[in-house]
């Protein structure tokens, strides 16, 4: 019997939830004004004077955003990998954060919206949708690694260049700061307004991604076999692409481009759930939340004049994982048709 995998899968959920809770409390406690973790947790619920102000108004929005964005990115990475049957599939590899950032920047550039209006996430979602749909379309049915990576690289680079162009043409004297924010990603100075703006989209995206579980499981056998098992493959594809775009678009609208969470999180949990694409979804979401919370704590602890951007840190951690996966799939890539 597969008792090894089953018993590991049983403790994996509670263990990840425990880890997320610990990291969330750490995230409330860490900052310029150091609070002991127990006081941070207490200040969240009871009135503890200035500690409560710091925890509730400065750190809680940041913690909630890290939790929701990390969870969504982890889930969407796992779902896209299941859809395309490829462990390198992820919104970052598809250039979606850059495309979402372009959507957001264009909205601001043309003065269609302020930084806290719904037009901003809508434009970011549209940008993400275009990039993910384009990569899924270009990659085709059984997405080869080479095509996936090249298509994503092209779209990400194009969106990045267009964003830089829009910002450099902008009369805004703070343009450089904005480039840094949109292309590098940050959870600094976020408020509950940002949480309210992004949370409905992030939660809806996660719920939709969980609805395609069975379809992703069946897709392990390829599209035709999945279809013959009663799965509406077209619906699974639309929901996965659409929900991932909504998730990453909303995330970028409030936090800029934060990459590689969706690539790394599923890899950490997949061996623990017997590589089942459906059973990997929730653990990948929890692992994504834990990773982003940990990264957000780390940027506050790294001694530097200004806070290190969280998108830089996740890229520094994610790119070696990306290279490691490519190295492991070298044989397949070398055999790929030109």
């Amino acid at each position: 019997m597969a008792t090894g995998i089953t018993s590991r899968a049983r403790w994996l959920g509670p263990a990840l939830i425990g880890l997320v809770v610990v990291l969330a409390i750490a995230s409330l406690a860490i900052g310029p004004a150091r609070l002991p973790p127990w006081l941070a947790a207490k200040a969240l619920v009871f009135d503890e004077g200035s500690a409560s102000v710091i925890v509730r108004e400065i750190r809680l929005p940041r913690t909630l955003l890290a939790l929701l964005i990390g969870g969504t990115l982890g889930l969407s990475g796992a779902a896209l990998q299941g859809l395309l049957r490829n462990p390198l599939a992820d919104v970052t590899v598809f250039g979606a954060p850059q495309a979402a950032a372009l959507g957001a920047v264009l909205t601001l550039y043309f003065g269609w919206a302020g930084a806290l209006s719904l037009a901003l996430p809508a434009a970011a979602i549209l940008g993400a949708l275009l990039s993910i749909a384009l990569v899924v379309w270009v990659a085709g049915r059984d997405a080869g690694t080479v095509v996936l990576v090249l298509a994503g690289l092209a779209i990400g680079s194009l969106a990045g260049a267009a964003t830089s162009l829009a910002i450099s043409l902008s009369p805004n004297p703070f343009a450089v700061t904005e480039i840094v924010f949109w292309l590098l990603g940050s959870l600094e100075d976020r408020s509950m307004v940002h949480v309210a703006l992004a949370a409905p989209f992030l939660i809806a995206a996660m719920a939709a991604l969980l609805m395609v579980r069975t379809g992703l499981q069946a897709l392990s056998l390829g599209e035709e076999a999945a279809e013959s098992l009663g799965v509406d493959v077209q619906r699974v594809r639309l929901m996965t692409v659409g929900a991932s775009a909504v998730g990453v678009g909303a995330a970028v609208a409030v936090a800029g481009a934060i990459g590689f969470i969706g690539l790394v999180a599923p890899h950490l949990v997949r061996p623990l759930v017997g590589h089942d694409p459906a059973r990997a979804l929730i653990p990948a979401g929890l692992a994504g939340a834990a990773l982003l919370l940990a990264a957000d704590c780390a940027v506050r602890l790294i001694p530097s004049a200004a806070e290190v951007k969280i998108g830089v840190l996740t890229a520094l951690l994610g790119i070696p994982v990306f290279l490691w996966i490519i190295a492991r799939r070298r044989a397949e890539i070398a055999d790929a048709p030109a």
């Binding site: 597969a2 995998i5 059984d142 392990s220 056998l221 997949r270 590589h275 089942d276």
Partner: peptide
Amino acid sequence: GSIAWPLPVRDV
């Protein structure tokens, strides 16, 4: 037919 992930035979 192919199998995308290292799923145990029983799960396939």
